[in-house]
Design a protein around this nucleic acid. Structure first.
Lengths: 301, 301
DNA sequence: ACCGCCCACAACCGCCGGTTATGCCCTCTG
DNA sequence: CAGAGGGCATAACCGGCGGTTGTGGGCGGT
């Protein structure tokens, strides 16, 4: 089975037509036609039925589809890896972090780092867990920052800072003297809340804890991002549970109190175990730790 | 990245030399040399260092190795699948089962089936769980028989018959009148036993149950197969826990009693959900069920 | 009925991937 | 230390694979 055939097969199934596949592969339509016939000849069974002048995948072709897709994906990954493997030390700082951190902590860190290393170029990606792992493994980025546990063989994670889930509320919700006191989760019973449906480990954890509260909090609005929850809370939509970085960095007028759950959100750095971090990278992580601890200390106080 | 290069890279890392790789790929050594240079040219960094006239993989090359190996494996799988996809109904009965079943139940089933379908050719493979899944998914075989749970997306499993773990002992170990009575697991405390280290779900389950017994059974000998355990038990080595098929079909002089654990070993048929089973195949499964139930009834009585 | 889309076939051609022949370097050995 | 041998690189050569353009036929929509 030549790779040519696999690419062609994949392209035809992607575009739905042979000419489309030919365009995708940057070859002419007759070349694709001939290649497809060769592939079928080689395999011994037809891959597509020619029905009414169109190509329609055979049953056998559909059986091979998953494998073909996997191979194409692997090839793509290899491509990415080999492209990133070339430059060993050209990009001193390539960071990928979750959207939440990209909107709160990381800009300050990069700004501060830029004053010390003005000539260092920084690449910042925002990705969720799975693509973050890929990006690190394929050497598209060197350091990942996340609030989730990212156990992954081939990557090490280093806890930088721990904090509490924060309950945010419209201004004046609580007496000011209470703001430093952790709020027991039972106090959320029956309260109006903004639901968080973000599909990550922390989102699930929050859902799990809220499910135990009786009577259940009343959530009329469900949002996908913590930022959006901040905005809605500030407009009087109710309470919400967010990570401490979002809570502290939000531009909205908000009250916030830590939720009484011991140390349940941890900022972690993730990177490849080979090739120890260089000067800029370690300095970057130092700044992340410092600023994060500063933020969380403020938030907790 | 051409597939050619990937194959070559894999071959060089497999054989350790370029000429070896060339032989493996059935091409001449200069062709391999040229291809390797093209690959390195294309990638932009050397894959192998030429040190003292030999090839030595670069650090970068080793980074790509896992991906390359995965791609080669995928290609091999695709090859197998496409080879088996060709013949839709040529092999009416291709069965894969675990070694235990191949030595006990299946021969009788095949013999019986041969009397009804004398012209049907049967292919029997013996494989452990993971290769069994592969074999079924790649259509190298049509029906799998196993005593383990084989949950696998893309395959369905059908329970055929349930039975008990059996305790086997040298002749005369128990009074004959006790043989039908299930033995409580606590009765194994402090007994001499043959340990089973077979690495499958049932082996782990047995280990788990035995670990709870106090004082722990005394196992001086550990074996990898149930058959071997039978032989050692028959020679007075102590007791052993085996699946009911091995116990019942062993040629050794043995006593056996069911272990008091409710219905903890299940004979299952596994096959692809598409393409319903044909006549021979359903008849085969009928016979498996009948003979298995007969065996287990005998064993339990 | 016509046009447009899509696929198949034909004829042609450049270059990729193979070959054989040969040379260099290193290692091992008597 | 000289010679043998294994391993890789280079050179010169060649066939066919993989591409092109040009064309024709089947089908559907207007």
């Amino acid at each position: 089975m030549r790779l040519r055939y696999i690419e062609l097969f994949h392209a035809v199934l992607s575009t739905g037509s042979l000419t489309g596949a030919a365009n995708l592969l940057n070859i002419s339509q007759p070349a694709a036609s001939k290649a497809l016939q060769q592939a079928e000849n080689h395999l011994g069974f037809p891959l597509f039925g020619r029905v009414r002048g169109r190509l329609q995948p055979t049953q056998q072709a559909l059986l091979m589809r998953h494998h073909i897709d996997r191979i194409m994906r692997e090839m793509y990954d290899l491509q990415r890896l080999s492209a990133n493997i070339t430059r060993p030390e050209s990009h001193p700082l390539r960071v990928t972090c979750t959207p939440t951190l990209a909107q709160t902590l990381v800009p300050d860190v990069i700004a501060r780092l830029g004053k010390v290393y003005p000539d260092t170029s920084v690449e910042l990606f925002t990705q969720h867990s799975a693509p973050m792992c890929e990006s690190l493994m394929l050497r598209e980025s060197d350091i990942g920052l996340t609030l989730q546990d990212m156990s992954h063989h081939g990557l090490v994670q280093q806890p930088l800072c721990g904090g509490n889930i924060m309950v945010i509320a419209p201004p004046g919700w609580w007496p000011d003297r209470d703001l430093a006191r952790p709020l027991p989760i039972a106090a959320l019973a029956g309260q109006p809340m903004i639901g968080i449906t973000v599909q990550d480990a922390m989102g699930n954890m929050l859902q799990g804890h809220l499910a135990k509260v009786d009577p259940a909090p009343r959530a009329h609005v469900w949002v996908q991002t913590y930022q959006l929850a901040c905005s809605l809370v500030a407009r009087g939509g109710g309470l919400a549970l967010v990570d401490p970085f979002t809570a502290r960095c939000s531009r909205e007028p908000l009250q916030m109190r830590p939720l009484k759950l011991q140390l349940d959100v941890t900022l972690r750095a993730v990177y490849r175990p080979d090739s120890p971090l260089n000067g800029v990278q370690t300095r970057f992580l130092d700044y992340v730790r410092e600023l994060a601890q500063g933020l969380l200390a403020n938030a907790g106080a």
